[in-house]
Write a protein that binds this DNA or RNA. Structure first.
Length: 502
RNA sequence: GCACGGAUAGCAAAGCUUGGCCAUGCCGGGGAUUGCAAAUCCUCUUACCUGGGUUCAAAUCCCAGUCCGUGCUCCA
């Protein structure tokens, strides 16, 4: 079994080989912290979280770096609008970022460097690029000269070096007054009056956007590293700029072995964006639905495919996720926390066995193997999820069949282990056992309400049971309707009726 | 204009590199279980954008075309 990864630079799936066997260096472009995160950010960081989790599960030690862009035009603008210092705005949004990502069950990266902490390194790289004639100084800053390394143009997007101007029209010349060529990009911007700035050999100013990721990734991961990720839109110009800067600075190529880019979230077929006003913040959504349901919806697609977000998609995700959760809970209940060495040994999983239990276990084992194959095939979470759902079906079938109690406990244990490994540890879709027991515990308000109506409900249920014993179905249903009006759901079980608040 | 990606059943979406079997879930129909519900399981209908070609065999390969999205400007 070998991990294959789609590399944007080579435009194909290639076998994955880390620079240092056993260790993986991974850098993912973080957010510019001028506002709350929206669904697009959620998609990106959930995608790379699953990649992170799968690499760790495969036995690699991953050094995962994700930056914060804590200075740029939008931050300055927003801070001015709000009348606060830009650092205050940055701090606020970083805190909000972690709250959102924690809710989505995203594991923390190893480091979260902020670009303002790397100004020194950025200046040093810029100086070197000037010395090597890859960059030049103008009256408004320092620019990278793209024509100084034409062979690196378009390596991620396949764009022709001369063709870009045509489509971009007049727009490209609007920024960077001092540029010699429309393709060049800023390494250092001299400050305008009142803007936050840092001293540099070229005057007070701030770094260009692209140089920060080069400085931070190089500082943490070295001059060449394994994986660099980010949104699809960052391929150009951001990541191509990083290739120019990094490779011209170090003279080594490639700076990154595997470029990974996640697909976008669309709304009704159009890209979700702030300018179109068709975006949902993470908060908007998780106020209404379980964050793990949102996570399910985002994982229920291969990371490179676009996702068209809508209510139906969330509804499907909710149904699926609930089904998974119910099956996991059923397995937990069936297992009943019996110590492993006290469980009866299950028969060997064997697909070709005529013995039903052995055959079922064989089927589950096959799905579990296919799950791993899917994850190894460029992190195909969509297929991994379908394999999980197939396991759900098989586990439900087994645990609802006429297994004897001892087998039931063992199968429950087997299923719990598998769910927790794949749906839990790898996909991050399961709450912890503690969270489940808290979910099962009722809040004070619920308890009080139940206490309040308990006598009345019990009385009605007795009447209903009596009516049912007499096969007086219409009265039984009338009583249930009455209970429904009170907000009470009745479920008939083999042990008699059970009720709960709806 | 140039570049990149896409078009699969009522809906969402895998499969395409390495041609032949099967996705998966939601919605809907039928059934088992239940007095009826809920949950669970079984089962069914409806597919591979169009036109050619290659092949015993094409969703998959080749050629041509149509439509859609994204990037080329701050973006995950």
């Amino acid at each position: 079994m070998a991990l294959m990864i789609y590399d944007t630079r080579r435009k194909q799936k290639v076998a994955f080989k880390p620079i240092n066997s056993g260790n993986i260096s991974m850098y993912v472009c973080g957010v510019t912290v001028y506002d709350l995160c929206h669904l697009g950010h959620a998609r990106c960081y959930v995608a790379f979280d699953v990649i992170h989790r799968w690499l760790e599960s495969s036995g690699y030690d991953v050094n995962y770096i994700q930056n914060f862009t804590d200075i740029d035009d939008k931050i300055i603008l927003r801070a001015n609008e709000k009348g606060v210092d830009f650092l205050e705005l940055v701090e606020e949004n970083i805190n909000a970022y972690f709250e959102d990502m924690d809710a989505l069950n995203i594991l923390r990266a190893d480091q979260y460097p902020r670009c303002t902490e790397y100004v020194e390194q950025m200046i040093s790289i810029t100086e070197d690029l000037i010395a090597k004639n890859h960059a030049y100084v103008t009256n408004d800053g320092v620019y990278f000269h793209v024509e100084s390394a034409p062979e690196k143009y378009g390596v991620l997007t396949g764009q022709n070096i001369d063709a870009v101007l045509g489509g971009a029209g007049g727009r490209v010349s609007k920024t960077g007054e001092g540029k010699r060529d429309h393709k060049d990009f800023a390494l250092w911007k001299l400050a305008k009056k009142g803007e936050p700035s840092w001293p540099s050999p070229w005057g007070d100013g701030r770094p260009g956007w692209h140089i920060e990721c080069t400085a931070m990734s190089m500082d943490h991961l070295g001059e060449q590293f394994d994986i660099h990720g980010g949104g699809h839109d960052l391929r150009f110009p951001h990541h191509e700029a990083e290739i120019f800067q990094g490779e011209c600075h170090t003279g080594k190529s490639p700076v990154v072995n595997y470029w990974l880019h996640n697909g976008f979230v669309n709304m009704d077929g159009e890209k979700m964006s702030k300018s179109l006003g068709n975006f949902w913040t993470i908060r908007d959504i998780i106020a209404k639905i379980d964050p793990l349901v949102l996570r399910f919806a985002l994982i229920n697609a291969q990371y490179r495919s676009p996702i068209d977000m809508n209510e139906k998609l969330l509804h499907d995700a909710e149904k699926n996720h609930q089904k998974l959760l119910d099956s996991y809970k059923l397995a937990l209940d069936s297992w009943d926390n019996i110590e492993e060495n006290k469980l009866r040994r299950l028969p060997e999983p064997n697909l070709s066995s005529s013995e039903p239990l052995s055959h079922s276990l064989g089927l589950i084992e096959k799905f579990a193997e296919e799950f791993a194959l899917a994850m190894d095939d460029d992190f195909n979470t969509r297929v991994a999820v379908t394999k999980t759902m197939s396991i759900v079906r098989e586990v439900n079938r087994l645990l609802n069949s006429d297994l004897d109690e001892e087998d039931c406990k063992s199968v429950g244990f087997f299923a719990v282990e598998l769910f927790e490994q794949q749906a839990g540890k790898v996909l991050g879709l399961l709450p912890t056992r503690e969270q489940i027991s808290i979910m099962n515990e009722e809040s004070i308000e619920v308890k009080m309400r139940k206490e309040e109506i308990s006598d009345e409900v019990e009385e009605l249920l007795n009447q209903r049971t009596k009516a049912r014993d007499e096969k007086n179905w219409s009265e039984a249903d009338q009583i249930r309707d009455k209970l429904t009006e009170m907000g009470v759901v009745v479920t008939d079980t083999a042990e008699g009726p059970v009720w709960d608040l709806s």
